[in-house]
Nucleic acid binder design. Structure first.
Lengths: 146, 146
DNA sequence: TACAGTTAAATTGTATAAAACTTAATTTGT
DNA sequence: ACAAATTAAGTTTTATACAATTTAACTGTA
């Protein structure tokens, strides 16, 4: 039986330390990690609702609204009320926001390569297990909602 | 080659969602997850320096100082300046802090069992890979310090 | 033994997270 | 049609994270 304590501490520590490495690279582009994540969602699919960004990153409006306002202030995104449904806000990339993609991805490549070549690390297996655990945890969260 | 983006997002999401499940249980004891982690360190070794707690949890004094003051306000720990070295602060469990251990661990057991029995989840392998990645990331962080 | 360098906490400032609540707009059930 | 329920963002509050700076205390060494 795996200790829940050890598993959660491992996830928590590894996640935070890896993000620190990433932020070190991202700071050159004035992006925090959650801001970068938001941009990656938009690079994959432009013009998307706040709610949809939240679903993909598991973040809610309390986190995203101020974050998106900062990205707007940096002129990386535009925010527009939906015409059909006035409750929604559509997020669109600006030209500077789009051009950022290549630069940021290039800047992250060296770290990606170093990690993939790290001896004794089997990242694809880890990645796969993580997705399974994520699904299980989501299932449990939804169960408790009833 | 495993995508750094996908790996970090998996770690980040899974960590946060799992912690949400844990907080749901911990709130009955008025503990947040980082406060719980701090208590687990003290349950393993009582009377320890802030710096040592920080090393085990990878947290610095900017996070721990206010957190420990809250635990002190709840009467779970005592904070004492070192007599030999006035710069240090020793953290000790109070009696209520010690008694909390059994209660909290009991309360977490059901979730631990559910996760261990989740079909398709191989937690011990995940746990092992996580520790390897954590070590690699620590190594990289230390390299960059130079 | 001065004293530059280091160390441990604390403080400051910025940016998340997430629960709880509010507001405005849309949907639904009858 | 229309009141009730739901939904999407935003706001508020509390608690991290963490970089950067500050302060006080300790240490090695010329």
């Amino acid at each position: 039986m795996v200790s829940l304590h050890q598993l959660s501490l491992g996830l928590y520590s590894t996640s935070r330390l890896l993000i620190q490495l990433l932020q070190n690279i991202l700071k050159e582009y004035h992006l925090t990690y959650p801001q970068y994540l938001t941009m990656t969602v938009l690079w994959e699919e432009d013009s998307i609702l706040v709610k949809e960004i939240g679903e993909r990153l598991h973040l809610d409006s309390g986190t995203l609204t101020p974050l998106l306002k900062k990205l707007e202030a940096m002129n990386y995104v535009k925010r527009q009320r939906g015409e059909d449904d006035e409750r929604t806000v559509h997020i669109e990339l600006t030209y500077p926001g789009k051009s950022l993609q290549t630069k940021v991805q290039q800047a992250l490549l060296p770290l990606e390569e170093i990690l993939n070549e790290m001896p004794g690390l089997e990242l694809s297996g880890l990645n796969h297990s993580l997705q399974s655990l994520l699904e299980s945890v989501e299932t449990l969260k939804n169960l408790k909602k009833e």
